[in-house]
Design a binder for these strands. Structure first.
Lengths: 225, 225
DNA sequence: AATGAAATATGACTAAAATCATAATTCTAT
DNA sequence: ATAGAATTATGATTTTAGTCATATTTCATT
């Protein structure tokens, strides 16, 4: 099994602020796991009792609404941590985490993380920074949900995925989402999401290759009203 | 001017985790201020350079959307801190803070707070907990915005204000909001908010005394579809 | 107490998005 | 390779909420 102190992934999250000794200690307690596409890592109400460090793959964080629809709140990618929020408040999970492709995760038990949060102020400040960033993004999503049309939200979602998670060599978005996932990010019906994507296509803003999406005119997408 | 170490307000926020010495130090740097109803404490893009501790009064945190409407993201009351998120990321304010009634605030400069965040792990863990709680609430609002009707969101807003901020002796909500504020919390047009409130009134779920709102049937409100 | 401004209220109409129905296409497992 | 399932796509209709117009009420100021 790999060692945390040598793992390159930690550079992308708060674990980078841990000392070599702290990483060695954590490494000895961690467990690696492989999660298959579509599998649920944890669901709402689960006691997570630790954090996951995403070594590879992508997952969605979502919450089931009373109307039966699943609202996606965040996309978590390679390098991110998963489950910090619940760990800190000591509550059960507020969201469900579902793998969008095959994933490799390392699980670090709660006590190890809490120990470092209380003893390494640089680390806890880093976690605080990540949480503050997530909170800003969440506030911005609230504003978008409340004030923008489905068309605008979908355009912004495509741009967000493009800018934050990149593209494949052929120019398609590297994060492959179903139309249903898009609908569940934007907060609309699947048919509406599909309809709007079709319109974007007709307008030459995007192209589709199967279910893959390629941006043809990013400035046009940004100007969508 | 009052002394932080004797101030009862700190019991309600993370400042309670500071030692007497730390509070004395902070007390010597803080400035008190009175803000009038309707005044803006800070706006989007401002460098706040510190946190505010709300000694009295209520304010709204909102963000101006591109369509010209102001979306309210959070209500901040007596005992809460204001401005922590921006302080931690070191960014300018993402939201505007506007007093909903006359307020009394204490401003603590950034350096003092950062010093304690890095030296008092109990304090930084407490701030982390508050931020994690805010993030959970924000995630839940995203789901509601995306998946629920204006009618449901307005019913839940009334219940939220009732449960979290309490009522006056006559049973009306103690946080007095204009119909426009309600619309800006729910993310709808003022006319729509007013219309739905009128319906609630007709259905006997609420009563209105001027602009004040009183819940008549909280179970009915919870069951609104 | 009177006046004007702001907030609240309601109606009529329009626009946006959801729902229901049904095809067409793509993927999966045998 | 092919059947069946799942996903994507599009049309028709209904529902929800936004916009515009206009009263009515409340509130602050003189």
């Amino acid at each position: 099994m790999g060692k945390c102190e040598q793992c390159i992934i930690k550079q992308f999250n708060a674990l980078k602020s841990l000392s070599k000794d702290e990483l060695v200690r954590i490494s000895s307690c961690k467990t690696s796991m492989i999660i298959k596409k579509g599998d649920v890592i944890f669901e709402e109400g689960d006691s997570i009792n630790g954090v996951y460090c995403v070594k590879d793959g992508i997952c969605k964080l979502s919450k089931l609404s009373s109307n039966g629809k699943d609202q996606i709140v965040k996309i978590v990618v390679k390098g991110d941590l998963l489950g910090q929020r619940s760990l800190i408040t000591g509550e059960t999970a507020n969201l469900q985490a579902t793998a969008l492709n095959d994933m490799e995760l390392c699980f670090i038990p709660k006590n190890e993380i809490v120990y470092d949060l209380l003893n390494n102020s640089k680390f806890s400040f880093d976690v605080l920074k990540e949480m503050a960033h997530d909170l800003k993004e969440a506030d911005d999503i609230i504003v978008n949900m409340a004030q923008k049309t489905v068309r605008q939200r979908l355009a912004e979602t495509i741009i967000y995925i493009h800018d934050n998670f990149g593209t494949n060599p052929d120019g398609t978005l590297s994060v492959l989402l179903s139309r249903e996932d898009f609908a569940n990010i934007v907060g609309t019906a699947v048919e509406s999401a599909i309809r709007v994507l079709s319109q974007f296509k007709k307008e030459g803003l995007i192209a589709t290759i199967g279910k893959r999406i390629k941006i043809n005119n990013i400035d046009g997408l940004k100007r969508v009203e």
